Amino acid sequence: MARLLVGLVAIAVAFYVYALVDCLLFARVRVRGLPKVAWVLIVLLFPVIGGVLWFLIGRGRKSAGKQPVYRTVGPDDDPEFLGALRVDPVSEAQLRDLEQALADVDDDPDNKKSDNGRSER
């Protein structure tokens, strides 16, 4: 019987500490019923019953209407991101000229490289 009593006292003390810390750290604007200071005093003066009352009555719930809802938008759905994209400024004629210049460099016999990476002369 003594072990059961010690266990119940340990659970009551843990609940008391948890309720007190929760009451102290809870946002003042979300407290219901009484001012926050009054709830702290109730939890302090009536350890178990004050904690139960705090969780049932005093602790307000999150309300979806007061907090803004943020939505993640992918880049393909974001008009700002899509507006920032622009067409590549290289035209088809410039692209063909670059390809031709690279082909000319590849065909140049003086620019051939050997297997070890050095130019042959």
Rank of each mutant, 00 (worst) to 15 (best):
A2F: 10
L5Y: 05
L5S: 12
V6C: 05
V13K: 10
A19K: 07
L20C: 02
L24W: 12
L25P: 00
L25Y: 03
F26G: 05
F26V: 02
F26Q: 04
A27L: 08
V29P: 01
R30Q: 13
V31E: 01
P35E: 12
V37M: 07
A38D: 12
A38S: 13
L41T: 05
L44P: 00
L45R: 10
L45I: 13
P47K: 14
V48C: 09
G50S: 08
V52Q: 00
W54Q: 00
W54D: 04
W54V: 03
L56W: 09
I57W: 05
G58H: 01
G60A: 11
R61C: 08
K62N: 02
K62P: 00
A64R: 10
A64Q: 06
A64S: 08
K66I: 11
P68K: 12
V73T: 13
P75Q: 02
D78F: 01
E80K: 06
F81E: 06
F81G: 00
L82C: 11
L85P: 00
L85S: 01
R86N: 06
V87T: 07
V87C: 01
D88G: 04
V90L: 10
E92M: 05
Q94S: 02
D97K: 13
L98I: 06
L102T: 00
A103D: 14
V105L: 13
D106C: 02
D106T: 03
D108V: 04
P109R: 11
P109I: 14
K112W: 06
S114E: 12
N116H: 03
G117Y: 07
R118A: 09
S119D: 02
E120G: 04
